[in-house]
Amino acid sequence: MKINSELQGAYVFSSGKNMGTFKAVGYPEDVGVFYKLEEYEGYCWIAHGRYPTNTPGWWGGAHPFTLLDWSIVHNGEISSYDANRRFIEMFGYKCTLQTDTEVITYIMDYLLRVQGLTLDEAASVVAAPFWSTIEDKTNLAEKEKYTFLRTLFASLLITGPFSIVLGFEGGLMALNDRLKLRSMVVGEKEDKVFIASEEAAIRTMEPDAQNIWAPAGGEPVIVKVKEGAF
């Protein structure tokens, strides 16, 4: 963070462990060939073809963002950006890339690593259930928990359309905004799980994918490889 905000001529684009990032401007198939992706192996692959909407496309702005051992892909534009940014910057983070994705990465780092929330708890902060949903809950402990998290981390609620995939050591989490203003589909085939914006993308990777379903807005999909359970 210090390098990116203070050092001239140097920029850190990726800073994780056991993680590689390949970014380029061009067609996805050419990028794959250029970086010789067939030479790599991994238990978790995150890819993103970006149509840069608000800024000119450049390779540095391509997803995923791989910062602080998180790898994050985000499709959407969050309307809560400055509320989130100004809150998270209190805790030593510096948003220098001027993208929503960066602030989401720092929010997840803060909630998961610094505060020690579980993935589910973190998801219920950034895509908090509506108050009416919380009030309707019959499980009192859950009601109390959601009210607590929403009140405590009010400024980390993310509004506006988003679907995000957060990769971490041992798995990933996919999440939609609470109104589900962006699409996201999940499919399975044997020990593999596929998550994409469109079912067509899953079918391209695995024509026989099963159990295709669309998670509800704010409902996190958590996949962990080491524990083997989905």
Binding site: S79, S80, D82, A83, R86, F87
Partner: peptide, 11 residues
């Protein structure tokens, strides 16, 4: 495009 007031605070 904001559906909760906490996402407006300080925005």
């Amino acid at each position: 495009g904001i559906n909760s007031i906490e996402a407006l605070r300080g925005n």
